[in-house]
């Protein structure tokens, strides 16, 4: 399809982009930031979005790339998914990000779509928001007034609604390194390789020292179980201290299973052609168990 007309602004720098965005919003224009365009362009072409202007930051040299910054890894917003998943820094230091990114759509999308764009789109069916939530990432946003940081727990306000204010552009994300002892898994359930997650589970699990197999700490967040990504706090709490021994051994109740059965607590699963809420709740429980097992195993 063909999008409705819009003004196209391609700033030469991030500063200029912030200014253009701020000016446009000040003028009452409905302006959108275009990066990789993998979410926005389909909406434009379907004529479900009618921005009066696009500020295209997709060709800016910055913020792009992945940087090890000690206690965290900074991922520039314009880094493409493909660059993220191939980055050795990402794979070694924040592997959950690499695992989830590798499941995003298809190679064509991953070569154009950006890390920041995917997060700023705040689609709860996207794979990265849940990862950001599970890892307590920090979002760095910039406007003409300067930079500020938004914790992941506050970034995803509602369906397609990030906590960006008018004139703000997502610059990058600080992804905390969780340190030694953590295992990770992203369990994505989708109907075809390229389709959105029906439900996804981002899991990070730290087991006790000395092969004890007891969960010390867990971070779980769910994809597409509500208007925003959902942190499965109940599971995290219930997992603490749970024995990680293989399921069903010595007839003891599987406490991992019991904990994961609480995965849908607090979720508000959507309804679409790929699953109703009840099915999604069920999937969340099953997949959380698998994700936790895989992360800890």
């Amino acid at each position: 399809m063909i999008s409705a007309p819009f003004d196209y602004i391609r700033p030469a720098s991030l500063e200029e982009a912030c200014r253009a965005l701020g000016d446009a919003e000040e003028a009452g224009d409905d302006v959108k930031v275009l990066a990789g365009g993998q979410s926005l362009l389909p909406l434009l072409r379907l004529r479900l979005a009618y921005p009066s202007a696009l500020v295209d930051i997709g060709r800016l040299p910055e913020p792009r790339g992945v940087e090890d910054r000690g206690d965290h890894v900074f991922v520039g917003a314009l880094t493409t998914h493909d660059e993220v998943m191939r980055s050795s820094v990402v794979r070694e230091l924040i592997p959950l990000v690499a695992l989830a990114t590798a499941t995003v759509a298809d190679p064509a999308v991953r070569h154009r779509g950006t890390f920041g764009g995917s997060l700023a789109h705040a689609d709860p069916a996207g794979d990265l928001p849940a990862v950001a939530l599970a890892l307590d990432c920090v979002f760095v946003v910039r406007s003409v007034d300067g930079e500020r940081e938004i914790p992941a727990s506050e970034f995803f306000v509602d369906y397609l609604e990030p906590a960006l204010e008018p004139g703000e552009i997502l610059v990058g994300v600080r992804v905390p390194k969780l340190g030694p002892g953590w295992g990770f898994h992203y369990e994505k359930f989708h109907r075809t390789a390229q389709s959105w997650a029906t439900v996804g589970v981002a899991a990070a699990v730290r087991l006790g020292e000395g092969g004890g197999g007891t969960v010390e700490e867990a971070r779980i967040a769910l994809t597409n179980m509500g208007p925003t990504p959902v942190r499965a706090h109940a599971v995290e709490a219930a997992l603490r201290g749970a024995d990680f021994a293989p399921s069903g051994s010595n007839g003891a109740p599987d406490r991992i299973r019991e904990a994961c059965d609480r995965a849908d607590e607090g979720s508000v699963p959507p309804t679409d052609l790929h699953g109703g809420p009840e099915y999604r709740r069920h999937l969340a429980r099953v997949l959380t168990y698998r994700a936790v097992r895989a992360a800890g195993g």
Binding site: R257, C260, D261, T271, D272, L273, H274, G275, G276, P277, E278, Y279, R280, R281, H282, R285, V286, Y289
Partner: peptide
Amino acid sequence: AGSAPTSEGG
């Protein structure tokens, strides 16, 4: 971890 579904979903 199955609850029996009670209705058709999507």
